[in-house]
Design a protein around this nucleic acid. Sequence first.
DNA 1: TCATTAAATTGTT
DNA 2: AACAATTTAATGA
Length: 224
Amino acid sequence: MNLSDSLRLHARWSVDLDAAQHARVVADLAVQHVAAGEPFCRKGEDVDAWIGVMAGLVKLSSSLPDGRTMTFTGVPPGGWFGEGSLLKREPRKYEAVALRDSTVARLPRPTFEWLLGTSIPFNRFLLLQLNERLSQFIGLVEYERLLDPDAKLARAIADLFNPILYPGNGPRLEISQAELALLGGVSRQRANQSLRRLEQAGLLAVEYAAIRVLDLDGLRRFGG
DNA sequence: TCATTAAATTGTT
DNA sequence: AACAATTTAATGA
């Protein structure tokens, strides 16, 4: 699969660009492979690019002073992040770690700002994404204090299938139960139990190293 | 194409 | 955390 195909799939915002804009994006994008467990964005670093996940699976988290880490969300292929710090010209506020071998693309700041100034569809995409993230993080605060592991996992999964943040992905996602446990902040055993309950409730289907979502709204509402 | 083996993932304790 | 069972992928006849 060449870069253009990959962009149509995993950079949905690029399909609404005109020829010149698309050409510059293709020319300026830097594709990078990151190994599982590798933190490829660190807290405090200068933000010089907008980052998209082309393949694999990424986790956005913040490490607290006491050494513990708090996971915000998982980012499947098609997800782009970092626009907040890019817009505000501030150091990165969290870190990004690859949960498995992944491919990420970096869109340099000058290109990002050029699109911001020249493409209305690009602005619309960003606005929708920022709005969606806001409600996502409000939900995060809610379920952190719920403490019900089933509900926590349900919300973490629902986030992964957000059609606005990660368009172009179908109802099926290849992800191990160990990876889901990391994202949900629960043990793998607990994740296994929760997945069976969610399957029993008809919200998703558990497959080998994958899950298939059957009722996204049901997952979002689960336990809440 | 089929059988064997290794590696990854799952299910259970 | 450890273990056994299951599934997949890779290898070679």
